[in-house]
């Protein structure tokens, strides 16, 4: 994958940071309970389980039951963090997320690992491409897609301190480091302007933030000034940052490792329509599932690289 992100250092996978941060929080806060559905080794929730076996429940392959149990724990004052693959906890647990978490407004934190297609070879059944759209559709949910290990640690901490349901999307592969250390000013709903630019704005999250930075560098060499915004929180959306982008640049490209419908792109588009109509382009999966393959091969084939962002910028500027 490294060849796709020239100039960027690679760090840990965001799932690794999730597991470490959750274990660290567990040392501090006794009201945290962690549930997993037989993927604790993969989601890294096992780190917590090894240190706090009494507060860790591996429910086996029972995503629906896990989500329901989390609602019960939360209504008794616990702060449950539940994890599985994004495909399973969000899709198999969706009615339970609605009934036992969102509707009663309970304080449950949901971590969906192996988000997007960059998990690679296991194929489309494991690749969550609709999880963000579904999570965003649940009233009251905060939805966040951190881009690197440092931001993930901050997001896990913020999730604990936030009162209400949160969805965090974790990724499987090691990814480029965007932040030098854990950002102290991280807050849900607050975007980060990573690169200034005046011609167009790329709004991205997760793995696509690194691609946006590479695209920024490439276009700068061609004389095109690209603003790069890390919009880790898809919901609530930082509308001020979207408005600035719509006002101050010629248009917005949204890049996400997700379907282009229902996720970050749709939410940004809705804000742009309402606040300040501007041309937009979307980089993501267009009404399709992916397949098995090496992560880099998949990202190229399904159009999730810096090159695809560069093309979208050119399309937008040509309009």
């Amino acid at each position: 994958m490294k060849e796709l992100y020239p100039g960027l250092e690679f760090g840990k996978a965001t799932r690794d940071a999730y597991g470490e941060a959750l274990r660290d929080l567990g040392r501090q806060y006794e009201d945290i309970v962690v549930l997993d559905a037989d993927l604790a080794g993969s989601t890294r929730s096992a780190y917590f389980g090894e240190e706090f076996p009494d507060r860790f429940f591996n429910v086996g392959i029972q995503e629906a039951n896990m989500v329901g149990m989390a609602g019960g724990f939360a209504s008794c004052g616990k702060v449950p963090f539940i994890s599985s693959f994004a495909s399973f906890v969000i899709l198999k647990g969706f009615d339970q997320l609605r009934m036992a978490v969102a509707y009663p407004k309970l304080n449950v934190k949901v971590a969906g690992s192996h988000g997007g297609i960059s998990l690679g070879e296991d194929g489309a059944s494991q690749q969550a491409v609709e999880d963000v759209a579904l999570a965003c559709s649940l009233p009251g949910f905060t939805v966040c897609v951190p881009c690197d290990e440092h931001q993930m640690r901050a997001a896990v901490r913020a999730a604990y301190h936030h009162r209400g349901p949160v969805y965090l999307r974790l990724g499987r592969p090691k990814v480029p480091v965007i932040y030098r250390s854990e950002p102290e000013d991280f807050a849900f709903g607050k975007a980060v302007r990573l690169r200034e630019g005046t011609d167009v704005t790329v709004i991205a999250n997760g793995l696509m933030v690194g691609a946006a930075i590479v695209a920024h560098d490439r276009l700068r060499d061609k004389g095109i000034s690209v603003r790069v915004v890390d919009m880790a929180t898809v919901k609530p959306l930082d509308e001020d940052e979207v408005l600035s982008a719509a006002r101050e640049t010629r248009g917005i490209i949204v890049a996400e490792e997700h379907l282009i419908h229902g996720g970050l792109g749709s939410r940004v588009a809705q804000a742009v329509c309402r606040l300040h109509p501007a041309p937009m382009e979307f980089v993501g999966l267009d009404d399709t599932y992916a397949e098995s393959g090496a992560p880099a091969d998949l990202l190229r084939k399904y159009g999730l690289t810096a090159d695809n962002i560069v093309d979208a910028v050119r399309r937008l500027l040509a309009r």
Partner: peptide
């Protein structure tokens, strides 16, 4: 004590409460 109406869910919620 719980939002129900989509059947099948109360026992899971109760289990979480009991373990709490």
């Amino acid at each position: 004590e719980a939002s129900t109406g989509s059947l099948g869910q109360g026992l899971s919620i109760g289990l979480g409460m009991a373990l709490a």
